[in-house]
Design a protein around this nucleic acid. Structure first.
Lengths: 190, 190
DNA sequence: TTTACGAATGAACGTTCGTTAGTAAAGTTC
DNA sequence: GAACTTTACTAACGAACGTTCATTCGTAAA
């Protein structure tokens, strides 16, 4: 059997290509070469280049939204929620750094209607975090600094992991989760 | 005099284009349109597309390196140095968000030898900060967490400002400098 | 042996790309 | 006002792009 292997292979190669060269600089001819096909043969498996980017970005975005819902439904403590988000960000950046990079850096090359869908998902995700942070300040658990600064600083603190995590590097995931979360929450906690 | 007015105009338009669409998706034809020239006329002022990106990225990188040297030669206190770096990052992100974005997101499309030059400058800049942070931990001024985590978290904390700073937004620069620096250094200080 | 079908192919389409060549006008210097 | 430089133009180049098309291959069921 072993069906569907080729389609998956194409998606993985595309994600790697998009990460390394960027979406626009990645050609279907190069992608075909990486999966040992002729360019035209790609279209037996996928419908077009844009679909590749959309699947990667929207898939990743949905994962974040779902995780966020799950965390918030299971837990009510602001600091514990932020801790879990932090752990999740570190985990995804380490486990699938390729998709994480594409999601983070290449989404702007999405076309409508995918771009709109992506923005909605991201907005949904971010507004939940903003709400948590605002609540944290109200409850006196977080410092009383501009909530936009707290929110943005919190989220951008994870933006180096997937870039820094080169293939050869050995990483202790739990240590990294603990250290990053420690530094970030130290900055936010009252 | 007022020489080079057109050249400057081309560079500014190029930076804006690179930021909005990315380097690869920015065409010389579009750039020409933005400065009211025919595409070929651009080459009366610049030598090629790559040079535009190189000037922007390398110019920005040199600015950071020079500022870093200046800060470190004037000051010896670790926390004060980090504070000044933080203030400088916020300032550049607000004053020239376009160049800051291109520098941060599009450098990977540099070709040799510009790519090598860029990496050297960035390495020079980053190693100075790493040294400061390592010293800070040794001196007991910063927390005793993995120095890579401290370094990367510190630097990535500025990566949202130039993206968030939309044209219409009113920003109180000094307040932002104070707040961001406060949050970051709270996380790092012992 | 025939029928059916997904997978893969080579060739080609129309478009866009960065860039060059050649040239004419405008500005500057003597 | 002649000589020279700078700026801008039209036209075109070769290369690469994403994608389509008709066709062939390989396999497995009928």
């Amino acid at each position: 059997m072993a069906i569907g292997g080729k389609k998956k292979e194409i998606y993985l190669a595309a994600a790697r290509l998009f990460r390394d060269k960027g979406y626009q600089a990645s050609s279907m001819r190069q992608l075909a070469k990486e999966v040992n096909l002729e360019p035209s043969s790609l279209y037996s498996h996928i419908s077009n280049k844009q679909e590749l980017l959309a699947q990667i970005c929207l898939g990743e975005a949905e994962m974040y939204v779902n995780k966020m819902k799950s965390i918030m439904s299971e837990c009510d403590d602001v600091l514990e929620i932020l801790r879990q988000i932090s752990y999740f960000h570190v985990e995804t950046a380490l486990d699938d750094p390729i998709s994480a990079t594409v999601f983070s850096d290449e989404w702007k090359h999405l076309e409508e209607p995918n771009l709109g869908r992506f923005r909605n998902l991201r907005k949904e995700y971010e507004s939940k975090i903003r709400y948590i942070i605002a609540r944290g300040t109200e409850e006196g658990r977080l410092i009383d600094t501009d909530s936009m600064v707290l929110f943005q600083t919190f989220l951008s603190s994870f933006k180096w992991i997937y870039l820094w995590n080169k293939p050869g590097r050995e990483v202790d995931k739990e240590a990294l989760q603990r250290d990053i979360t420690h530094v970030i929450l130290r900055g936010l906690k009252k």
